[in-house]
Design a binder for these strands. Structure first.
Length: 865
RNA sequence: GAGGAAGUGGCGGAACCGGCAGACGCAUCGGACUUAAAAUCCGAAGCCUUCGGGCGUGGGGGUUCGAAUCCCCCCUUCCUCACCA
């Protein structure tokens, strides 16, 4: 038996043992070995897209964190569900296949194999029997099945919509995937283009998606982001008659109380009425403006936000609150790109007196500005040259004069409704979800186009609609779907009527598979349903969901939407899928810049004492923190580190860096500290000089040590470490648990012979979730019997958290002047007299005004003059 | 511009409720062991100091016997959304 700590050898052996004994297999209700007495705990990682570059230490941060939690919960007696799988369909996987010249299927299999290998290297306690791959027909069969539920409820529809088109990617993208007119993936320019697309009616769930955020234990910042994305606004819809046209111009406003101050109208360049209402005289300039707006990317529009642009259409609208002969009621209609076509009705009434944007526009084009809201006393208004947008009192507004903004709004709406020219309305920024892609690597829509032009779902029992193999799967230059080229696949028959039908050739976006994967994990092998009711009833909802904050909106909103649809369909029993959400921080890296602020590649940096310098030139460099980047050569590969130091050190370092939620830099120089701690722990248990597998005091049948003297001191040290660990699990700053364990091992090293077998056992159990391989090895050498992963989690005995003697800080005027020892149960007056002696020199010649002894008895403070 | 998170030694970070600022680790320095080095072990260390003490948690003010922690103002960094009527 080896006496040295050799992590790789130990780790491989224990990983095999865990696998051989199916230690991490979660047992479902109804299966053999299920224990109904244990409570359940479902801890889920956001499953990765298996990229070609392999696992990143940032992924591993979350995975190690959840693994430690899962292992602890298991030791605490929970039935733990802790699964892992692959989000394998979608654009990035297809792009990767194209650039590497591989088939997506083959490339995906290669990448998942690599990810699986890397995850297993870390010794993560996943139940690998539940592994899923969203691009596996056994999985996407049920994605299609669930799509059918949305389809039959009318939540999926086809529409000609202006969509984001990315020429580079040859695909349409969802609103959420386009940032400032560029694709989220790859940062390519995008343009708007009308195309017939499948949409999901997520807006039907807007209100519930908003309301149900309340009960969730999620970071407030994520909830806020979702609320803002949903963007609820309450107001009114108002119809303006158009001079010389039968059509009405409908606008949405949150401030119907300012209707009397509307001096012009603005419609978006894409508005359907623009062509119709433009007068001959204005035709040329309007056409030019509209054409220009269409070619402008969203980025250009945003850049131009400082100066408003627009053109008069020549048309006039009638403000319904003014009499037909009132000149205030005749307002010009302009077209301007500061009004967006996709929000509200794509048209606004412009109230330049009380809206910043309208104000700017009115000033730009010299349009009239009227004040209809008087600001409350003390606030500046139009008379001070300020556009007042807050709440005040209605003035110059006929029937609502004198009312507060709140009352004026209500009365204005009532008035509009009685005249049938408007009504209360709530709008949302959230738009329906553009759900189809003209790409290859995704779930085919399980839909058939019949000869009569109608569209029907492929019956559930004919699923899956398999994605056919294609040699050339690249998107067509005209943007048509690659599957459309598979003529023999497209032509099929409706299984119900045997009549000819054509398959839909679009595929679902990459998000589809991740909209329900946590449910499939509950019952991954089920081939008669996506998951059984019993399994969902037992495991749902996810108790802890851990992943990056970058999924704040898209994935988490889509997943909640599908889950609610399933809830309505009676498929799941909870309204929300993820009860507690936690975002792990980003793992950043150090980078180095010279005096001019230029970044220097990490392999050209050397340490100079406590500073850094450029190798060769010796030029001094400053250390800064950045994202990891290949160009800076500061990307860390877990494989190398594990090969060099072992998985336990890797796990420990990931957690020791700092609180799980914080972003923090990876510092290779700090890793030896964690390794040293494990080596020191090893030497506490194993005598490197001796032949025994374990030191005699830890061997089975070792002499029992009474808890007194140094053993008592160690008992206290252990109790403190265990208590600290418990707190650190609550706060998810596991770095402090490790720090507490280090302190204990330092204490143990100093009085090794006084440490008992029992103390050794409890310490190993506490360390086991963090460094499972080494603890398993030492546990075995102690001949404790069984695996440590199945042992019970140790808790601190409060009795040993209390010291006989406490350190009593003594302050004079709040400044620390001495620290004295006092018996733990000393009375306040005893403490005061002990303290008085200790700071006698500071009290000399002073008058003691007050002696402060806080209720917790933690210190004494003399207030003197 | 709006919203969110955060600013503590040379570095990563501790400090549960307002009560010893800097736990734990890295780097640094000293010592032991060694022919020597590495490894290991032991120890020192916030900054300044005339060795009395003074100053210290981004800056300024406030509350308090006492503030990293609570309140007000300001600065910086990161993230997210940005003409949403």
């Amino acid at each position: 038996m080896t006496q040295a700590y050799e992590p790789r050898e130990i780790e491989l052996r224990w990983q095999k043992r865990w696998q051989d004994e199916s230690v991490f297999r979660a047992v479902n209700p109804g299966e053999k070995g299920f224990d109904p007495k244990r409570p359940k705990y479902y801890v889920l990682d956001m499953f990765p897209y298996p990229s070609g570059s392999g696992l990143h230490v940032g992924h591993a941060l979350g995975y190690v964190g959840t693994d430690i939690i899962a292992r602890k919960k298991k030791m605490e007696g929970f039935n733990v569900l802790h699964p892992m799988g692959w989000d394998a369909f979608g654009l990035p996987a297809e792009q990767y296949a194209i650039t590497t010249g591989k088939q997506p299927r083959a490339a995906t299999d290669e990448n998942t194999a690599n990810f699986r290998r890397q995850l297993q290297l870390i010794g993560l306690s996943y139940d690998w029997s539940r592994e899923i791959d969203t691009s596996d027909p056994k999985y996407y069969r049920w994605t299609q099945w669930l799509f059918n539920r949305l389809f039959e409820k009318g939540l999926a529809y086809r529409a000609e919509v202006p969509v984001w088109w990315c020429e580079e990617l040859k695909t349409v993208l969802a609103n959420e995937e386009v940032i400032n007119g560029r694709s989220e993936r790859g940062n390519h320019p995008c343009v708007r283009r009308p195309l017939k697309q499948w949409m999901l009616r997520i807006t039907a769930y807007a209100e519930r998606l908003l309301d149900d955020l309340e009960g969730l234990d999620w970071p407030e910042s994520i909830k806020t982001q979702q609320r803002e994305w949903i963007g609820k606004s309450v107001g009114a819809e108002i119809q303006f008659a158009l001079e010389g046209h039968a059509e009405e111009l409908v606008v949405f406003t949150t401030r119907p109380d300012t209707l009397w101050g509307a001096t012009f109208m603005v419609v978006a360049p894409e508005h359907a009425l623009v062509k119709k209402i433009t007068t001959a005289a204005q035709r040329a300039s309007v056409d030019a403006y509209v054409a220009k707006a269409a070619t402008k990317s969203e980025l250009d529009r945003t850049d131009a936000s400082k100066t408003k642009t627009g053109v008069f259409t020549g048309a006039y609208a009638r403000n319904p609150v003014f009499a037909a002969d009132d000149p205030r009621g005749r307002v010009p209609v302009w077209v301007a790109d500061y009004v967006v076509s996709t929000y509200g009705t794509g048209a606004i009434m412009s109230v330049p007196g009380h809206d910043e944007r309208d104000h700017a526009f009115a000033q730009m084009f010299d349009l009239p500005i009227r004040e209809v809201v008087r600001p409350p006393a003390g606030e500046k208004g139009l008379s001070d040259g300020v556009c007042f947008t807050g709440e005040g009192t209605a003035i110059d507004s006929g029937p609502i004069d004198g009312l507060s903004t709140l009352d004026a709004t209500a009365k204005a709406i009532a008035l509009l409704e009685s005249k049938k020219v408007g009504k209360a309305r709530t709008t949302y920024k959230l738009r329906d979800w553009l759900f189809s892609r003209q790409r290859y690597w995704g779930e085919p829509f399980p839909l058939l186009h019949l000869e009569d032009g109608s569209v029907v779902a492929v019956p559930d029992d004919s699923l899956p609609v398999l994605l056919p193999a294609m040699d050339d799967f690249k998107p067509a230059t005209d943007g048509s779907a690659p599957l459309a080229r598979m003529k023999e696949w497209v032509a099929t028959t409706d299984p119900r009527t045997k009549k000819p039908a054509r398959r839909d050739t679009d595929t679902m976006p990459g998000w589809a598979g991740s909209c329900w994967y946590w449910l499939r994990f509950m019952d991954p092998a089920n081939d008669s349903a996506p998951f059984s009711k019993e399994a969902e009833q037992y495991w749902g909802p996810v108790d802890l969901y851990v992943g990056g904050a970058s999924h704040a909106v898209m994935h988490l909103l889509y997943a909640r939407f599908w889950h609610k649809v399933f809830f309505d369909a009676g498929v799941v029993h909870t309204k929300e899928p993820f009860q507690k959400l936690f975002n792990q921080g980003m793992v950043t890296a150090f980078a180095y810049e010279d005096a001019t602020g230029r970044l220097v590649s990490s392999d050209e940096v050397e340490t100079r004492g406590s500073g850094f310098a450029k190798s060769g030139t010796g030029e001094p460099l400053t250390q800064i923190v950045t994202k990891m980047a290949k160009s800076l050569k500061n990307v860390v590969n877990p494989d190398d580190m594990i090969a060099e130091h072992g998985a336990d050190t890797f796990r420990l370092y990931e957690m020791f860096m700092g609180p799980l939620a914080d972003s923090k830099p990876w510092n290779t120089r700090d890793i030896p500290g964690c390794k040293r701690f494990l080596e020191r722990t090893w030497r506490v248990f194993v005598d490197p000089e001796g032949d025994a597998p374990i030191r005699p005091q830890f061997a089975r049948g070792a002499t029992w040590l009474p808890i007194e003297g140094e053993t008592l001191a160690l008992e206290r040290s252990l109790a403190r470490a265990l208590a600290r660990a418990e707190l650190s699990f609550q706060n998810l700053n596991l770095n402090t648990a490790i720090a507490a364990y280090m302190t204990f091992i330092n204490d143990a090293t100093k009085s090794l012979s006084s440490m008992s077998r029992d103390q050794g056992e409890r310490f190993l159990r506490a360390l086991a979730p963090f460094a499972p391989h080494m603890c398993e090895e030492l546990w075995e050498r102690m001949e404790t019997g069984g695996l440590i992963v199945r042992a019970a989690w140790p808790t601190a005995d409060p009795m040993y958290l209390v010291e006989d003697e406490i350190d009593l800080p003594v302050q004079v005027n709040g400044k620390l002047r001495a620290t004295v020892k006092a018996p733990k149960d000393a009375s306040p007056s005893d403490k005061e007299s002990i303290a008085r002696v200790a700071v006698a020199s500071h009290l000399e010649g002073k008058e003691i005004v007050k002696v402060v002894l806080p209720p917790n008895g933690r210190l004494v403070n003399f207030v003197v003059k």
